[in-house]
Design a protein around this nucleic acid. Structure first.
Lengths: 343, 343
DNA sequence: AACCACGTTCGAAGCGCTTCGATTCAATTC
DNA sequence: GAATTGAATCGAAGCGCTTCGAACGTGGTT
């Protein structure tokens, strides 16, 4: 193995000088820098990660905590993971994969053994045991999915409010004047927080602002329940030509119900969904997608900022991406505004 | 931070003794072991991973190299990754996530900086640049997917030959006596190696052994091409009541073509696919699944064996799992034999 | 009673790197 | 020309752990 001492000897300098060349933490003359660089190249020197971590108390590794079993849509997780690793590498970081199965104990372990510098935690629940632990651990962390705003922690999520509004705006631009909203099961709105409510709020205020007639109803996931709600909407909102659906499980039944009621989709009723891209793709519906790749990138950037001692905003909401799938041509990306930041 | 010295003082022993308690590399009296263990618990001691790696030249981390972008079916990758992490943790190992994008350079980097003890590489190509690098690196590695048998390297894969045979056996047990085989595009069979050929071989010899009439044809992925091949099969093998399909892209068109020809699926023609589970699930077809979870577990176990100085078989072929989806009941797992080992 | 052997435990020497105070030397200043 | 400065570099002290030879008892042997 080639060590820093070998490089130092080869370049005729002290080991510390090589270190300074590598880290840039002290000025080194251009000439020395060249010479050391050349020695590094010739000897094929690669610093020992463990030694670095020991002496410098920085591992250059970040923990990515993923729900690998269930819950979140798998392709979304993958895209996110991919984006995280790529972005991390741009910052010269490696990624340690931790499953959510390990729970808080897993976080304690990798932090306690000084394996990682910080955490990226996906799919954090509203009352997650890991949140307090994360705060105690005293290492930078970025949470994804649910914006559990907790002091000191940083969160990233899709801007669901904007997503709701975006659907309305899109439909209004297509000429629709009466729009329905079919949301999550009632119970989801009952807990007084979360993305469902924010989506609905965005939808409602946009409808108001745009002056369109609208009705919003919750829906259970079962086929019959969905059929009933669709029936109600068609009856109450007789001139309804468009429907925004924020309920993955019901989505398929919604389309089926509409057709059963004699409405063609999308000719008679245009359906816009807020759901993972794959599902919308399959049903050929225009949709607002979860921008997993942007989410991953942004999350890493926020974490890096914290590692560098900055204090990034406590909450970053990413602009929704709307893919139009009405035409015969491939998905058309409608450009969205920059992210919102809070705190 | 609590160090080994703190623990040693607290327990009234030398640091080295604490180390031996932890690693078990030298005998320690039961009484001392107790006392040290108690101190560890009381102080909440967790050994510093970097220091360990430096002194012991063992990181307890393994690299998982995944094709995160494309190629392999995403859910399969996830299941595999999940299984790898879980199994690795059982062996007290952590997992560093590396994307295939980084190529051979990525392997050189994580090995050169002593970040990992070994490699798990998924989706290795027939003439992959990483194979020679992996051999040079001199660290244990286990390859998955294509059994590129290379000296010193260990491979795990699905036993495609058994998969082909299994389909026949299953169908014969259901009473079928004339079975067609619709395979990958001709070009795939032309390269003189790989899973396509092995599947076909397994199918053919099983058909022979079972005394069933059979015809095998390659098929391109396009709809018209598939339709033509299905037509040919129906004409040539007039009494065909079952069809084994080893061509993911064509699978949907196969079912469509059969129905267009007036054959009900599965009543008139039973289709068994060799494909990712999700696809078969969607089309409600009985299928042979890639056992990603078993694959991941086995891969880690092989790697651990190598890390412990053993010389596991060069090639392990996992028994195929056949899921029957003909009935109304949920998937029924038909139990399969133990893995085959070579080398 | 002196000896040996064995199971335990200790002490010290690194592992390869970062970091900080000290040192050097040339360029500036009075 | 001596004193002052500041940039560039050096040297040494750790970081927390493993490991290896040595030391220490204890019990059994001759």
């Amino acid at each position: 193995m080639v060590t820093i001492v070998d490089v130092a000897k080869h370049a005729g300098v002290a080991p510390s000088t090589v270190s300074y060349v590598l880290t840039g933490k002290r000025p080194v003359s251009a000439e020395t820098r060249m010479r050391v660089g050349e020695s590094i190249r010739q000897l094929g020197y690669q610093p020992h990660a463990g030694a670095r971590a020991l002496a410098g108390s920085r591992t250059n590794v970040l923990a990515l905590v993923l729900p690998l079993r269930e819950g979140v849509h798998l392709p979304v997780v993958m895209r996110f993971a991919s984006s995280v690793v790529t972005t991390a590498r741009e910052h010269d970081m490696d990624v340690l994969l931790v499953t959510a199965d390990e729970g808080a104990a897993g976080l304690r372990r990798v932090a306690g053994t000084a394996r990682v510098d910080g955490f990226l935690v996906m799919d954090v629940g509203l009352d997650d045991e890991r949140v307090p632990v994360l705060r105690d651990l005293g290492r930078p962390a970025v949470l994804l999915g649910h914006p559990t705003v907790a002091n000191g922690l940083t969160c990233v999520d899709l801007d669901f409010e904007a997503a709701g509004a975006r659907c309305v705006d899109h439909l209004v631009e297509l000429g629709h004047r009466t729009i329905g909203f079919l949301g999550a099961p009632g119970a989801v709105y009952a807990r007084n927080t979360g993305f469902a409510q924010r989506t609905l709020a965005g939808f409602s205020s946009a409808a108001m602002r745009r002056g369109v007639a609208s009705t919003a109803l919750p829906a259970e996931r079962q086929r019959e329940a969905v059929r009933a709600v669709v029936g109600t909407l068609l009856r109450e909102l007789t001139r309804m030509t468009a429907l925004v659906v924020h309920n993955e499980a019901a989505l398929g039944w919604v389309v089926e119900s509409l057709r059963a009621e004699g409405r063609r989709v999308p000719e008679d009723v245009t359906v816009v969904a807020i759901c993972p891209d794959e599902l919308a793709e399959q049903l050929r519906l225009t949709s607002v997608q979860l921008p997993a790749d942007v989410l991953g990138r942004r999350a890493v950037e926020l974490l890096m900022a914290k590692l560098n001692g900055q204090r990034p905003p406590a909450l970053t909401l990413l602009p929704p991406k709307l893919f139009s799938r009405t035409g015969q041509a491939g998905p058309r990306l409608v450009v969205a505004p920059p992210p919102r930041q809070v705190g």
